[in-house]
């Protein structure tokens, strides 16, 4: 479900960096506003191609609210382009192409329980869907947020998680892979949380995002609880160059992650999901 196409989807639109927030040692959130004109609309789950002048372009999910005037992007410093973007300061210019891709099923999930399962940076692409569901809370059954991180120090959006926890109509469980004795919360993997949290597996939508291995284990745990494959949604990632289905790089089996994804219904990719090097 892509948004309306730009005049030239290959040419970056110029944006200005607004607020910059260092989330973690290697992760930064930037607010981007168009130099001219309004920001295009987007659906939760979609991504933009962010262009650092002269360096290159990478695909980053949009992780802000739909009604904000700017795009919000959380970027982890893992390479030349992400490092350049993470170093930008307020007032800098950045190129943006998008939004592209498919979105989380926040409308289809109305009337059912919603399980958000995030691992690490995977919470960023899920956050707009969480915002949407919380802003329309009465339309959904139980809302559960499960989040796994490496350790308590590297927990993304920690303050926001604590705010969500204060709501009486949301269940949140966070866990870390390991911790020291100062941490009084869960230690263990996200799939282990699924077995212990209250939701109706026969009337739930599960929205999952995180490293692919974590998603594989999570899907196993969800299906073991009885969640059906056509109600499990994942956000996939592959090498992207054009983001519009013409360069061929993002292919995952027959699927183009840029236009048939990144949000994919699990049953559509179940056969190839656990195969190596597809």
């Amino acid at each position: 479900m892509a948004a309306a196409p730009y005049p030239d989807p290959l040419a970056p639109q110029l944006y200005r960096v607004g607020r910059v927030r260092r989330e973690l040692a290697d992760t930064t959130t930037l607010e981007l506003a168009p130099v001219t004109g309004p920001r295009p609309t987007f659906e939760p789950g979609q991504f933009n191609m962010l262009y650092a002048f002269g360096v290159g372009e990478i695909a980053i999910s949009i992780s802000g609210a739909a009604d904000a005037a700017h795009f919000v992007h959380t970027v982890r410093n893992v390479g030349a382009v992400s490092a350049a973007i993470a170093k930008l300061e307020a007032g800098a210019t950045i190129g943006v192409r998008g939004p592209f891709g498919t979105s989380w099923p926040v409308v289809a999930a109305q009337g059912a329980d919603v399980l958000f399962v995030a691992g690490g940076l995977g919470l960023a692409p899920l956050r707009p869907a969480i915002y949407h569901v919380l802003a329309n809370r009465p339309r959904y059954g139980r809302v559960v947020i499960l989040f796994g991180s490496r350790n308590p120090k590297d927990m993304l959006y920690r303050r926001e998680l604590e705010q969500w926890r204060q709501r009486l109509d949301v269940d949140i469980e966070v866990t870390v892979d390991h911790a020291d004795a100062d941490w009084h919360g869960n230690v263990g993997v996200v799939p282990a949380l699924i077995r212990r949290v209250a939701f109706d597996p026969h009337d739930s939508f599960a929205l999952v995002c995180g490293p692919e291995v974590m998603m594989r284990f999570t899907v196993s745990a969800l299906r073991a609880e009885g969640v059906v494959s056509d109600r499990i949604y994942l956000s996939m990632e592959r090498n992207m160059k054009c983001a519009i289905g013409l360069c061929g790089h993002c292919q995952f089996g027959p699927v183009f992650v840029c236009k048939d994804g990144p949000v994919m219904r699990f049953d559509k990719i179940a056969e190839i999901f656990a195969m190596r090097e597809i």
């Binding site: 590297d154 892979d177 291995v213 974590m214």
Partner: peptide
Amino acid sequence: VQRLDATRLQLLDVYGKR
């Protein structure tokens, strides 16, 4: 078996940097 699977996932350090 579940604990073993979980431990393996922890071992992979999936949230760590490559």
